[in-house]
Design a protein around this nucleic acid. Structure first.
Lengths: 204, 204, 204, 204
DNA sequence: TATGAATGAGGGTTCATTCAT
DNA sequence: GATGAATGAACCCTCATTCAT
């Protein structure tokens, strides 16, 4: 049953299946056979198109980090008012990580497996976010004493940690809330804390 | 060739080598052969002492999480003044993660590889930290409106994220500071932000 | 080195080599490496085609028991006179076990290694043979008092035992006959004994 | 917890445990570790006493075949009347194989694993049984035309086959009898068949 | 005698990769 | 482009055996 020849379509299919599996099981935990099974293609074809497993992985990471860059920094550009943009960004970032486990997991895998994206994407992401915080500081929203990377760290680090630990919190502390209720609670209270930082600074 | 007969010593050696390798390459990325090579012992001996790779891994995680529990919650118990304890804890936690990459990486691997610690240690850690924050709230330091897990998330999440991204920040933003200077900057500014939260709340 | 591409041929080759080795050394005594060596193929290929050693074994047994079923029960169907069929069957069964050690050994191994054929072949064999004896009883050849399985046991058990012990008999009793002479002697005298049973019953 | 030193007792214990395991799982299916676990002794001690697994196996087989010789030929010696002895022997042999699976299985294993007892025991067994049948022929019970080994084969072969297949017969033919009822049926009808041989011959 | 730590070979199996088709 | 047969290395694990204690 030879499949009809559609190189681009085939490559895309492989990339998507590989992306899902790599996100789920990492590089070592994913075999070519798994990908070929998931994509209903042959082992040989995957390596024909991508040369090696290593290379396929690299391309998956590149694709996702380009996506990541776009999704995270996109909303920052079309800002309206500062407070609005801030809130939108926070909620946007939160929901992005809430919905897209794949991206976060791939990044973590890449971090651990020492296969972090050497492409320009990550650099551009950090630069854009740093520039964004700097612009907020320029407008007097945040204290200029605080380095943008510290804000960045606090916001992204907290959100990512939240999604990694929320299920443990629920279980260990035996809380009765649903996942969404718990998420909303976190988001509201975290926003409050951020505001308390902003206002405190501006009052000075 | 050599046949030393020191079961406890051998087991410890294996545990340490396994710990390092698991932290570095994860469970799937570490083979028994790697551990045996690193410890200059035979493959068979590792499984003789630890029954299975899975079991060895479990013991490594148990050891490290007991250590983690002690290091993180230890300082909280012998508190002097609240502010002092708070600061000590923050610096303690920061330095712990600064010096002990192993622990953090093992946790991350466990998260990704779906091998999270089912032992009581993690539960106890979260419980203790949550109780600690609750006590601070009871003393009016923090607003009782904020759930302890939110503080917890913000503090631990930020610190862990910092150590994951600081090298990228330095490189991408082309900063000239040394690693230590950069760490101190972060720590000071992060402490400041935390204080701004505390004072803001107490002023209300 | 050589990469012939003949999946069916390869599978057959593996099956034959495995059959011989399993018959010779049993399931536990046969390693994949032995089979791959005997068939001049790689270890991996055997498991590629047969999924697991266990499954390969199952297929070997299935093949041989289908063959066994056909060889043993085939002659019963095209019966001419009863005595003729009886004799033909006896000689047929005797010669089958004389020539095909593989089948008997595989059955014995399966018995000892607790891997007895769960397929329908053995059941059908026993059913057919039992039905055959029953038909002989219906025609008044054998006493209806004797359960078919008792005849069956006596005939098959004796023949199989013969081939297991004949070489010991020859050696221990220091007999000078050739193997074939010895076999013929047994077959003739055994047939005589069977007849004595038949006639005795029919005279009643 | 060093055990008290009792070399003979230890060796016996090992032999008994090994015997049971070898009977159950064969040579390849039994490991030193299994034996050491079953006997609550250390791996090392087993090889200290028996030099090698191969040697232990040989000794187990020797022991059991000596036992076999005694049990099977013992009753033949103290014969009273011929018919009595004949019947007693048949029932004796039947019950021996019914109760002592170990012995039968060890012999089968040895046959398949090409480790058959090269000692004098088997030779003596065959000789004695052959002599016994010859004596019956001398007394006119059996036709002198039939070679003793043919009788021997028919009796022992049938009984052994019975115990190997009775459970299959019950299952395949969907019979409702208990195991003991089924055994009794076989024994009675088999004895009847033997008598029909004897009488037929003597009538001539 | 007795233990159990230590080894190295080999067990079945998975896997990335190659290549004839 | 696409398949899947074929390979060989590495995987975890079991094992008989050795030997320090």
């Amino acid at each position: 049953m030879r499949k009809k020849r559609d190189a681009e379509g085939t490559k895309f299919k492989i990339l998507k299946c590989a992306e899902k599996l790599f996100a789920d099981k990492g590089f070592n935990g994913t075999s070519i056979a798994m990908i070929s099974k998931a994509s209903s293609l042959s082992d040989g074809l995957i390596l024909y198109h991508f040369k090696s497993k290593e290379n396929l992985y690299k391309l998956v990471i590149e694709r996702i980090s380009a996506h990541y860059l776009e999704v995270v920094t996109g909303p920052l550009e079309k800002e309206t008012s500062i407070e609005e943009a801030m809130k939108t960004s926070l909620i946007g970032a939160f929901n992005f990580w809430k919905n897209d486990k794949t991206c976060q997991r791939l990044n973590l895998w890449a971090y651990l497996e020492n296969k972090e994206d050497k492409s320009a994407n990550e650099a551009r992401l950090v630069e854009k976010l740093a520039a964004y915080f700097k612009s907020l500081q320029g407008k007097g929203i945040f204290s200029a004493d605080i380095h943008p990377v510290v804000f960045l760290t606090m916001i992204i680090g907290s959100i990512q940690f939240w999604f990694r630990y929320k299920k443990h919190f629920l279980k260990i502390l035996n809380l009765k809330q649903t996942g969404d209720e718990f998420d909303n609670m976190f988001l509201n209270q975290f926003a409050l804390m951020l505001q308390s930082i902003i206002y405190n600074k501006t009052e000075k």
